[in-house]
Structures are given as C-alpha cells and as structure tokens.
C-alpha cells in the first residue's frame, strides 16, 4: 500500500502546486521611480530594484521594441539569434556586438549578468523559474494577437525600463502610421486575400497576420471559411477559397514560384492574375511597433494605385 500512498502524495503535491495562489500586489503607478513593481501578463508581480542597464530579450518582438528606440543599445546585453537577420527582424542593423542567444537557456542568460529579462509564454517554463530563482526580474508576455496586445507590451516595457514617455511616443507613432494607411484606403474596395505560409498554414481571426491583412486593405478569405487562430491546410483548401491575392513568406526560396506553377492552383484568381506576393517574415510575423510599417508595406503592394507605385 505504501507505494500507492506515495502516488497519492505526489498527486496531492502536484495539485497544491497547480493551485498555488498568486499574491495580490498593487502596481506602482510612478513611471520613473525605482524600485517599481509590475504585474506581467501571467499575473506575477515583478519587482525591478533599479533602472535596468543590462537588459536581455529572448523574443523577437521585444528585440524590436527595445532596439527600435525604447532604450539605447548600450543597455541591451542579449537578444535572440533572429534579431540580426534582416529577413526576420526590423532592427538587424542595430544589433551590433550584442550577444545573440541561440536558445532561451538560463545559463547563457545569467552569464550576461542581466538586470531585466523579457520572455514569452513559449519560453521553457523551467527557465523562467531558474532566472527568478537567481533573483533576476523576468517579465513574461503571453498574448500576441492584436495591435492592442503589441501596444500593451510596449507600454509595460516602457515602465519596466524607465522610459514610459518613449513608449507612449512609440505607440502614438504607430497609431499615426496606421491612421495614415487607413485614410489612404478610405473608399478603396478591399482585395480578397489569403496568407498561406511556406509550411502550409493559414491564419484566421484572432491573429496578428489577420489584422495585418485587414489593416492593409484586404479581406482575409480564411475568416470567411471559419478558420480561427492558425491551421495547416492542403493546397486543395487554398484553391477552394478562391483568393484574388495570395500572400506568402520568403523563408523557402522559390515557394511563390512553385505556387504559381502548381496545377492545383491554376484556376485560382490570384495565380491567374499573378497576384502572388512573397514577403519576408519580418513583415508577416511582426509583433512590435513595426507592425504599422508592415501594414504600409503590404498595403502598398496590394493597392499600388493608391500608394503611388
């Protein structure tokens, strides 16, 4: 019986660990006064003792927000390996000699002696625990599905690094750029578009690519097909959705050409009219302030008459 008591004991331990309540801590309202406490997306309260001078980012979005003007480069000591890749990143030219982390590995991160780390929900949970265990403040972002999410991240980061004014300016500029595109597109009939990735996924409601397509003057035909979040689909499904435009990424060289030559898609209006647009991932999977610029890029490609191409 002892064995089964042991099993019951573990289960009980697991349950109590799962149900552990988060302490309620009120956020410090002051922007520049350190120490300050921030409640992140996961509900954890994170105390930052002084203005961070050695910041590490292990997500592409936070790489771009930091190096895109929120803090001087000298205050960033670690970014993702994608940050310096111009096909993936809007800040490739700004990385310089900053350490690029191949994976979100606690040991590599700690070796950089960080005083603030930005992670995402897809970072290994153990790594977050390890960093916190070493006394490093860790801020985790969990939702990346809308402009509102992106802007909330920017403002949280602004508070955390002691540059809330800069964060507000970044958000304002983003809104201005989006408004400018929207003004130009006023009265312009939207094009029916499908974003089909080179690994076979389409994006629907509740994703940033869906909002990107909509803001750039498109109608995402995946929405009409009832696809929410993202799903892997066959080329037959792509054909049946009959998009007027096909949008894809450049991760696999020649993928757009392959699409155009594929007999399954021959009867699709987008292919017949050569309306197949291949863009780098930095435009399509952007979750930073550069979302607004990606919208401009896509809008200009979809509506060359309006944007003076």
């Amino acid at each position: 019986m002892g064995r089964f008591m042991g099993v019951a004991a573990i289960l009980l331990l697991l349950l109590t660990a799962c149900g552990r309540a988060q302490p309620a801590v009120h956020p410090n309202r002051s922007a520049s006064a350190f120490p300050l406490t921030i409640i992140d997306d996961t509900g954890r309260s994170v105390t930052i003792p002084h203005q961070p001078q050695r910041i590490v980012s292990v997500t592409e979005g936070t790489d771009e927000i930091l190096l895109g003007g929120l803090v001087p480069r000298s205050r960033v000591v670690g970014v993702t390996k994608y940050a310096a890749d111009p096909a993936e990143s809007w800040v490739a030219g700004d990385v310089g000699s900053i350490t690029q982390l191949s994976t979100a590995n606690a040991e590599q991160i700690l070796a950089l002696k960080p005083d603030l780390v930005f992670v995402a929900s897809y970072t290994t949970p153990g790594v977050v625990t390890q960093l916190e265990g070493s006394g490093v403040p860790v801020i985790e972002f969990t939702s990346f599905s809308s402009v509102a999410d992106i802007q909330s991240h920017i403002l949280t980061m602004g508070r955390a690094v002691g540059n809330l004014a800069g964060a507000h300016a970044m958000v304002a500029k983003m809104n201005q750029q989006l408004a400018a595109v929207a003004a130009k597109l006023k009265g312009v009939p939207p094009v029916h578009l499908l974003y089909y990735t080179s690994d076979g996924y389409v994006f629907g409601k509740g994703t940033t690519p869906d909002q990107l397509v909509t803001d750039a003057g498109g109608v995402n035909v995946a929405d009409a097909a009832g696809i929410t979040s993202w799903k892997q689909v066959t080329l037959g499904t792509v054909a049946s959705l009959q998009p007027d435009w096909l949008l894809t990424d450049t991760s696999q060289p020649g993928f757009a050409t392959k699409l155009m030559k594929n007999p399954v898609l021959a009867a699709v209006p987008a292919v017949a009219a050569h309306h197949v647009l291949a863009l780098p991932d930095r435009d399509l999977s952007v979750v930073s302030q550069y979302f607004a610029q990606a919208v401009q890029v896509v809008a200009a490609d979809l509506h060359p008459g309006v944007f003076g191409h």
Binding site: I10, L11, L13, L14, L15, A17, C18, P125, T129
Partner: peptide, 18 residues
Amino acid sequence: LGAVSLWTLPGIAFVGAL
C-alpha cells in the same frame, strides 16, 4: 496547460504513465 504551472505538464504525464 503547459504554461499554467511548472507542475501541470509533469503531473499529467505522470497520470498518463501510471
């Protein structure tokens, strides 16, 4: 459920194993 807590994933794996 993996992000809920450090123990959710191992807990469910453990139950599956037994």
